[in-house]
Design a protein around this nucleic acid. Structure first.
Length: 470
RNA sequence: GGUCCCUUCGUCUAUCGGUUAGGACACCAGAUUUUCAAUCUGGGAAGACGGGUUCGACUCCCGUAGGGACUACCA
């Protein structure tokens, strides 16, 4: 079966570096969406051929990141390092076919050649390309691919369109290092072929590699996968996304209180669009997504927009789930989570979630409700309690104690009725009521705050602040 | 330096030869008001530049400028 007839298989192939870049996350998302869209499979391969950098915990970071994003692979991860034998086999085959050669250039010779080549504006060449082995068989050497020096290579990119390369510009890349370890460009080709990948969808930074990799496929007489190179994600200032732009690892987004479904939606809109649709479900994204529609230009991360999208999903999220996330955030800061906090959170979250752009903000908006009696009033709150106002709040407390229904609408009515009976506007006691209820912390509108706190807690807080003799 | 990619409001995008160039976020103004928000109404805001092709270009071609990637015995 040819690639176009086989069921589609995509993959994400991150290298374990200790964190998972947000760009990797988006690449994973696009591969996942495309696989789902076509009813194909989405695979994961850990590119751990660099033994120096790869650690078990770095691998775990990737697994955790993907799991958090909800982009789990359809099969267990393939570890590239474990395929090293297979990679060497392919190199032997290439050697046999005369499509690779051993190169004994020293580091110094290579550096000199690099300089000459750069000055001449051409790719570096090895003198061993067409030379017999030197005497003394055990000299250290690498194995290079023997690329054609004439002709051209076409990469028919799914997002960029046809991209033509002159073979003379492509250097003879190293396949096997002098210690016998396979290199990236060889390993990807072999692994993608062995894993049956039909669509290689990855970052823009690999577009140039695609030409060289194409040559390897051809040398092995393997069928070429389709390539799709996604433009990179840049920081808000247009420069390559880096630490100074704030978060760049998916774990950081999680800690900052972004919801995974919000990240999927936002990331999908970064470099891809479907008409005027902005907020959509996974099902819709899967139904609509196609690599062909990916935008060619790099996109910038926009914190304000992520916040907006996140707020949308916070509004939609289940209150119990949000309460747990808030508790996690509090615990991370070392707060002791008292008995009953989860219940209080669930009571207050419906009243504050609309204003929260992140779980961290939601946590701050919940603080007033979680505070233990007697709550401490900040200076500004204290200054709101003039004697006359205290008298009025006392009368209000009595009035509220008689309320049989404790819901926002009924409380609103009660508050208005009280203002009327006092012959004043809400401004005469509203701020003060808020002060004794929240101590000065942000809180929802009064009826909401009273309702969220509940009758006993509300009346108790009023009593705490008003019965105090001064 | 060489090779390759990219270029519509501040940002993400729609448009796929004929539109008052649309939407979203952000921004500004107003309304509301019991803090902060939220909400409602209204508003400003774009085809990098220069040449072509065409009856007609944001849309096609060439060039310039700017941005980016690659140019490793990293991935």
């Amino acid at each position: 079966m040819s690639v176009s007839e086989r069921p589609i298989v995509t993959r994400i192939a991150p290298s374990p570096t200790g964190s998972m870049h947000i760009g990797t996350a988006r690449t994973a998302l696009f591969n996942w969406l495309y696989a789902k869209h076509t009813g194909g499979r989405f695979l994961l391969r850990i590119e751990d051929t660099d033994r120096e950098r790869s650690t078990e915990s770095a691998v775990q970071v990737i697994l955790d990141g993907l799991a958090w994003l909800g982009l789990e692979a359809d099969a267990p991860a393939v570890f590239q390092y474990a395929q090293a034998e297979r990679h060497r086999e392919v190199v032997d085959e290439l050697l046999l076919r005369g499509r690779a050669y051993r190169c004994w250039m020293t580091v110094e010779e290579l550096a000199a050649e690099r300089e000459i080549a750069r000055a001449a504006g051409r790719a570096i060449r090895s003198p061993w390309r067409d030379q017999a082995a030197p005497s003394g068989v055990n000299l250290p050497h690498v194995v290079r691919f023997k690329g054609p020096i004439e002709g051209e290579t076409l990469v028919n990119d799914l997002v960029k369109g046809p991209v033509l390369f002159q073979n003379r510009d492509l250097d003879d890349l190293v396949l096997l290092r002098s210690d016998g370890a396979p290199t990236y460009n060889l390993a990807v080709v072999v692994d993608d072929h062995d894993m049956g990948i039909t669509h290689v969808i990855r970052g823009d930074d690999h577009l140039n590699n695609a030409a060289r990799q194409t040559l390897i496929y051809q040398a092995m007489d393997w069928e070429l996968p389709a390539f799709g190179h996604l433009p990179l994600i840049h920081g808000p200032d247009g420069a390559k996304l880096s630490k100074r732009h704030g978060a760049q690892a998916v774990g950081e987004f999680a800690d900052m209180g972004y919801l995974p479904e919000a990240m999927r939606n936002y990331l999908a809109r970064l470099g891809w669009g479907h008409g005027d649709d902005e907020l959509f479900s996974d099902e819709q994204a899967i139904a609509w997504f196609d690599v062909k529609d990916v935008v060619k230009a790099p996109a910038r991360l926009d914190w304000a927009k992520i916040a907006h999208v996140n707020n949308h999903y916070i509004r939609l999220a289940d209150d119990g789930r949000l309460a747990d996330l808030v508790i996690d955030a509090m615990a991370r800061e070392g707060d002791v989570i008292a008995e009953g906090v989860r219940d209080r959170l669930i009571a207050v979250i419906p009243f504050v979630k609309e204003g929260a752009k992140t779980v961290l903000e939601l946590r701050d908006l919940c603080r007033f409700a979680v505070a233990e009696r007697p709550i401490v009033l900040n200076d500004k709150s204290v200054s709101l309690l003039a004697p006359e106002t205290r008298e009025r709040l006392l009368r209000l407390a009595t009035r509220l104690a008689d309320e049989t229904i404790w819901t926002p609408p009924s409380l609103t009515v009660a508050l208005r009725a009280f203002a009327e009976s006092e012959g004043v506007g809400m401004g005469k006691f509203g701020p003060a009521l808020r002060a004794v209820l929240s101590g000065g912390l942000p809180a929802p509108d009064l009826a909401g705050a009273l309702s969220a706190l509940g009758r006993d807690e509300s009346l108790g807080r009023m009593d705490d602040a008003l019965s105090r003799v001064e």
